[in-house]
Simulated assay, not measured.
Amino acid sequence: MTQAATFIAKASSSDGEFHPPSIEEFFPEPIFFEGTLFAITRINLIQMLATVVLIIVFLIGTRRMRMVPSRFQSVIEMGLDFVRVNIAHDLLGRKDGNRFLPILTTFFFMILFMNMTGVIPFLNIAGTSVIAVPLLLAIVSYVTFIYAGIKKSPSNFFKNSLMPSGLPWVLYILIIPLEFLSTFIIRPITLTLRLLMNMIVGHLMLVLFFSATQFFVVTLGGWWTLLGAGTLAFGFVFTLFEILVAFLQAYVFTILTAVYIQLAVAEEH
């Protein structure tokens, strides 16, 4: 039974009451290897599926590149060019942009594909709606911009990150801890929570609309069907909005990583 079907079943249970979606649905019971460190839940399977589909799409799209591209190759090239031109080169320049392009491209498409599973029937939940994936990506982003800064200026990266030039020395007592929190603590936390919370809220809203539709139409019936038609319409519109959010969150995460790298390799470092 899919996650959405589970919600609907709860919404129309025999007690005749509406049961809204719960945050507990993001912690499903293990399907395989229960009780071990390698326990696999339904959400883990969706994450694996999104990863496999992403790999297959790019293998097929880039396997036989032609001067006159097919439609599928054109779509793949447009996606790659979007990251390369609008994120990597715009923020980092051609040299550093090409240098960090693989990781930025991986971030964008991995997040996009995992986000999109939240609006695909029978999957119905984003692979990024549990903290493991957003946190892992945030840690990789964190390590990347620190590596970039140290590589650019081994002796001055941390000094310049914590001590902006041109300030009176007495202000550094306040500035250093604030810069440390902002640069080395808050960045990975906000990257993680921004992506995670958007996917959680989006999923809960979609399930709320569609389970409410089922409740009004099937459980209550009669004139309540009109409300069911309204919640169905809202659910459809919100699905389109979630598709936009899936893209925007992939874009925001990737462009913020590029911004952090750009700050780390700035000339003053």
Rank of each mutant, 00 (worst) to 15 (best):
R66D: 11
I43C: 00
Q73I: 13
L49M: 08
R42H: 09
M67G: 14
F72Y: 13
R42N: 14
I60R: 07
S74M: 10
V53N: 09
F58Y: 13
G61H: 01
L54Q: 03
I55P: 10
R71P: 02
R71W: 09
I56Q: 10
R64E: 14
V68Q: 08
R64S: 15
M48K: 02
R63P: 05
I46F: 09
Q73M: 08
V52Q: 10
R71L: 12
R66Y: 01
M48Q: 07
L59E: 15
R42K: 14
R64G: 10
F72A: 09
R64V: 12
V57I: 12
V52R: 07
V68H: 07
R66H: 13
V52I: 14
E77W: 02
M48P: 03
V75L: 11
L45P: 00
M48D: 04
M65Y: 07
I46Y: 01
N44H: 07
F58P: 09
M48F: 11
V53G: 12
V52L: 12
V75C: 02
A50M: 04
P69T: 15
A50V: 01
T51M: 02
L59T: 11
A50Q: 01
Q73T: 10
I55N: 09
T62E: 11
V57A: 15
F72Q: 05
R63F: 11
P69K: 12
I43D: 00
L49W: 04
F58A: 09
M67F: 12
R66K: 15
L54Y: 00
R64M: 08
P69H: 04
